[in-house]
Simulated assay, not measured.
Amino acid sequence: MPQPEIVFPTDRLTVRQWHPADRDRAFDLYSRWEVAQWLGSTPRAFEKPEEAAAFIERCRQRGAADPRFGAWALERLDTGVVAGTVLLLPMTDAEGATDVVEVGWHLHPDSWGHGFATEAARGALAKGFADGLAEVRAVVRPDNQRSAAVCRRLGMVDTGVTERWYGMPLTEFRMTRAAWEAAAGER
């Protein structure tokens, strides 16, 4: 079953599928080292617009088998510009696929400092828990203070550094559905 074009709204964002027409913005986002340096086990910025087109196609395919998951564009309601990506995806480790689900975000520098990462991740967590997930994790490089701060604003618990994911030391954060529901009155 294909995912709907609009996955969920937030107060200031439409979280939707990436479109081929977003190629230039995706390239602008992922060709920046200040973004790419935090991504993947061997960070690399896009060098050609064709890489952005391939990225968009991969995003559109993610979650095709299970609509609970995906990597989605964050379209700002005030400008219509794509601010970045939010993802909710099962993680893999050295043994292969796991049932551990990760929330993550990548934002264009022109959208940093506005709370969009926290807002989008909060929406992704709400979607995941509404779809039946019992727990969601986030992993960030230990020196990525901006993303660690997003995790803390979300109320995620720092469970320490692990090398289980992506073959490198990462700080892992965790949110359970029970903790999410308990904190619902505070949001």
Rank of each mutant, 00 (worst) to 15 (best):
G113C: 04
E102D: 15
A53E: 13
L74R: 01
V86W: 05
R25D: 05
W112T: 04
G132D: 00
F27D: 06
R12V: 09
Q3S: 15
E51T: 06
E5A: 15
P9Q: 13
Q61S: 14
T14V: 14
D28V: 08
A124R: 03
Y166C: 12
P43Y: 02
P142T: 02
Y166R: 13
G63E: 05
R44C: 11
P49D: 03
L74Q: 00
L77W: 11
F46M: 10
R25F: 03
R122C: 07
P43M: 04
E95N: 13
R146S: 10
R12Q: 09
G132Q: 05
P4A: 12
H19K: 12
M175A: 09
S147L: 02
V100E: 15
V140H: 13
G63P: 07
T171E: 09
E51R: 04
Y166Q: 14
D110S: 12
L77G: 11
A65C: 12
A71T: 14
G63C: 04
A120W: 10
G167T: 08
L87E: 14
R152E: 12
P43D: 00
W72T: 00
S31W: 05
D66K: 00
T79Y: 06
A21H: 11
R164H: 07
A45D: 08
R25T: 01
A124H: 05
C59S: 12
I6L: 15
P67F: 02
A53S: 10
S147H: 03
I56S: 02
L107F: 05
K48Y: 13
E51A: 01
W180P: 03
G115M: 02
E172D: 04
R44T: 11
K127W: 12
V82D: 08
R174M: 07
R153L: 00
R60S: 03
D93T: 06
N144Y: 08
A179D: 14
L13H: 02
R62M: 14
D11S: 15
A126S: 11
E75F: 07
T98H: 02
R68V: 03
A130H: 10
A117H: 01
E102R: 08
A182M: 09
F27A: 03
E102A: 09
A73D: 02
Y30M: 10
Y166P: 10
D11P: 15
W112N: 02
D110E: 15
I56G: 06
Y30A: 07
H114T: 12
L74I: 06
Q145E: 15
D110V: 08
P142S: 00
T162L: 04
W105G: 09
E181K: 12
D143Y: 11
E5L: 15
A73S: 01
D66H: 02
E135A: 09
L170F: 03
C151A: 15
G160A: 00
R177V: 08
L88C: 07
Q17T: 11
L89T: 14
G80T: 04
A134M: 11
T42R: 14
D99C: 10
A149P: 04
R122I: 01
K48G: 10
F129M: 06
E163V: 11
R76V: 15
E57G: 09
